[in-house]
Write a protein that binds this DNA or RNA. Structure first.
Lengths: 219, 219
DNA sequence: CGCAACTTTGATACAACTCAAAAAATGTGG
DNA sequence: CCACATTTTTTGAGTTGTATCAAAGTTGCG
């Protein structure tokens, strides 16, 4: 069985979305993208839907004052780029070198006409995305330290490995996701280290040494 | 034809969601709710989906520090309370005295099995909600004055009447939607009035006197 | 190893928050 | 319809968390 991971939800599922993921993995040829290269741009025709095979992807929008708001990070197994309108609402870029499986939306649409579990899967995917964004709104309502703690827990959960969490993204990416500056992210991490909640074992390696404290901040 | 208005999108549509709205309006008996009364609570079984007939509704979540984050306001024609899981992610309350049409999800699900346009409509509804929440994230990334200007334009667009915009909600509601305090909302309104972008013709009546300026702030 | 990019740390500024009180709006009973 | 009580909104003064600006470390790649 292929394990499906929707952003922010790492439990393997056997229904709907699984079938869909299978389709993408089987029908879509993996395409490599170099770090920082564009996968699709805001406003472009949404011709495909995507699944991360390796590496990481970010979606974002540039605000009128030049700041960038990152909407989501997608990790291996995650699907992204699904739209109901015909153009993309956000741009997507490779956070690191990565490979992405791609399937034509039209191909999926035609299969959905015969197989209602496909349409069901598409709906489920949209609904999960909705839940994720709703959580993001709540995250943005909290203090800098709480946002960072929450982010670390989310990444730990989604990468689900033993040992330190390895962050695929830069401080700038984290800051733009959390609605903070890189300096504030750095200071929040330093503060968490001071409270012995985490240990920075490298700029992008974080040991979560006190889950209880982190969860308290996340709550 | 019945006009459907999805939150933040007031254009009448003739596809998918329209059929759905019709179903709710026809099948659901309108239920009255008094101001501030609960329509459903977070975590409750999501047995129904709802459509505002008159008045206004808010969905929200209480944060652990006691603050309240409002997720959305729903105005006449808007549908809300649709979940893909089986429980509500947020609570819903009447902003003002209102009436709400209700339809059983199970009834809709059974009709969806025969009529794929129903499932299509459910998906569309979820996707619109996703777009709305994504915009909310971007809104929360901006300055207090920009958030308030944007909010006023949104309300003007959604109520779509001539003359002053009548806000059905209190400053507290606005503040909790925009992630600000009531004082900051009040000061932002005063500042907009100072710039002659708006005129406050009563606490809850706002004339948008300079749309150009407001749109510039919104951009 | 050396350089360029990234991250951290420090000092200061400022937008929004908090606390407090005045003013305005809204509701209620006579 | 008015007078009063209550709630809501506005305004003021001071505080604070995060941003900004600047510079010193660190990291990792060629």
């Amino acid at each position: 069985m292929l394990t499906v991971r929707t952003a922010n939800q790492q439990t393997a599922v056997k229904t709907g979305a699984d079938t869909l993921a299978l389709s993408v993995a089987q029908m879509g040829a993996p395409i490599p993208y170099a770090r920082d290269s564009e996968i699709f741009g805001e406003g472009e025709q949404a011709e495909y839907i995507y699944q991360v095979v390796s590496g990481a992807v970010r979606t974002y929008k540039i605000l009128n004052d030049g700041r960038r708001q990152i909407g989501a990070f997608y990790l291996p197994g995650d699907m992204f780029g699904l739209e109901i309108g015909d153009s993309h609402e956000l741009s997507a870029e490779a956070v690191s070198d990565c490979t992405v499986a791609v399937i034509k939306r039209s191909a999926l649409a035609s299969r959905a006409r015969e197989d209602s579990s496909i349409s069901q899967a598409l709906w489920t995917l949209t609904a999960r995305e909705l839940q994720r964004v709703q959580k993001h709104v709540l995250l943005l309502a909290r203090s800098a330290q709480e946002r960072v703690a929450s982010f670390l827990l989310e990444m730990a959960d989604r990468t689900a490995t033993v040992g330190p969490v390895v962050l695929p993204m830069s401080r700038r990416d984290i800051a733009d996701y959390l609605g903070l500056t890189i300096e504030t992210v750095s200071r929040a991490l330093a503060a968490l280290e001071g409270q012995a909640a985490i240990a920075l074992t490298g700029a992008r390696r974080v040991q979560l040494t006190n889950m209880r404290e982190l969860r308290r901040l996340d709550s």
